[in-house]
Every structure is written in C-alpha cells, then in structure tokens.
C-alpha cells in the first residue's frame, strides 16, 4: 500500500508569520442533531474530547471537535485512526439519523504562527479577528480571499486553517503573499506606529 500524501506535502514559508501545510489529519464530518444523545456520544466518545458549543473548538491532544453549523461537527483525529474512529462513531450512533463520513482527504490544513499571525489572516478574511471577538477555542467559517475556509486559534499566535484540498496551492500562495516581507500591518501585533 502506498503512503498517503497531503496536497502540498508539508510545504512551509517563513515571513511575517510562519506558514506551514501541516500534513494529513483525520477529519470526519458528522451531521446530526447536536442535541441528540447518540450524536453527542458518538462525537465525544470517539474523540475523547468535550462537546463544543456554537462556534467553538474543543481539543485534547491531537483530537478536536469543531462546531461547524447547528447540525454539523468536524471530528479531527490522527489520520491513521480515521477508520477506527469512524467505526466507533457508527456503532455509537446506532439507528440515530446522522451522517458520519470521512473527509480527511478532501481538506488541507495550514498553520499560521507568529506575533503577526492575526495581521496576516486579516488581509484575507472579512471575519472580525479582534482578540475581544475571536480568541483561542473559537472557530470561524468564512473565506480567505476567494475560497471558503475555517480557522481557529490554538493559542493567541497560532491559527489552524482548513480549506478544500484542490485549492491548497492557492491558499498557500495567498498566505505566503500576506506574510510577505515589508507588508507588516502592525494593527493587531501592536508594533510601534509608523513614525509620522
């Protein structure tokens, strides 16, 4: 069996922020009534992570549960564990009306880290990235320039971004351009205001 390869195979860039394609992750889309016991049990049981509230991410180690919509969660786990996790979820769901499907290969994950990470991201998304509105533990689905993306903060300087695999190169090029030399905005990173 061949080794699975992520879209950009861990490409990286060092600029105002560090941009990395962070390889393959197990990602399972779970659609269902998030208030239903079976659905909650399937999500938390398979991942070992607490149920996230609206627009939240809960994580534990490499596993995470991302709230994607009122009836959708994204279950993140190790890539090689996906089938196992999915089986467990299916058992746990039983006859409940829900859809759990492997989307690990459909997506690409990026990390953008550094003190300018918010500034870099704010060049591309109309989402409000003010620390008061968007902090670690929250997830936002929005767009990066012309593509849909979801992102959350692992800590105050580290974004995780997921987008569709087919546009991985576009997303990477966007992020690298936004993190390009000489383009620091200093809006969020509180760099000294440019002398007047």
């Amino acid at each position: 069996m061949s080794e699975p390869v992520s879209a950009l195979n861990h490409a990286g860039f060092d600029g105002l922020a560090k941009v990395t394609e962070c390889g393959l992750h197990g990602m399972i889309t779970l659609r269902g009534d998030l208030a239903a016991r079976a659905v909650k049990a399937a999500a938390t049981g398979a991942s070992g992570v607490k149920m996230p509230g609206p627009n939240e991410v809960q994580s534990k180690g490499d596993n995470a549960l991302c709230w994607m919509s009122p009836d959708e969660l994204l279950v993140i786990c190790d890539y090689k564990d996906v089938r196992q996790v999915l089986d467990k979820m299916h058992k746990s769901l039983g006859a409940a009306h829900a859809l759990a499907v492997d989307m690990s290969d459909a997506r690409t994950m990026f990390c953008v880290t550094g003190s300018s990470a918010r500034d870099v991201m704010a060049k591309l998304t109309p989402a409000d990235l003010s620390p008061a509105t968007f902090g670690p533990g929250q997830i936002r689905r929005s767009r990066l320039a012309q593509i849909p993306a979801a992102f959350w903060l692992e800590d105050d300087q580290s974004f995780r971004i997921i987008c569709f695999r087919s546009v991985a190169q576009y997303a990477f090029d966007l992020l690298c351009t936004a993190a390009g030399a000489g383009s620091d905005v200093g809006y969020f990173s509180a760099a000294p205001i440019r002398p007047t």
Binding site: T29, R31, H97, L99, D102, S104, D105, A106, F164
Partner: peptide
C-alpha cells in the same frame, strides 16, 4: 430526514 455532504474532493 436527510443529510447531505459534499465528498467531491475526498476521492
């Protein structure tokens, strides 16, 4: 009772 998922890029 129907859920839809777009798995186009999974494969």
């Amino acid at each position: 009772q129907v859920y839809v998922a777009n798995a186009t890029e999974q494969f």
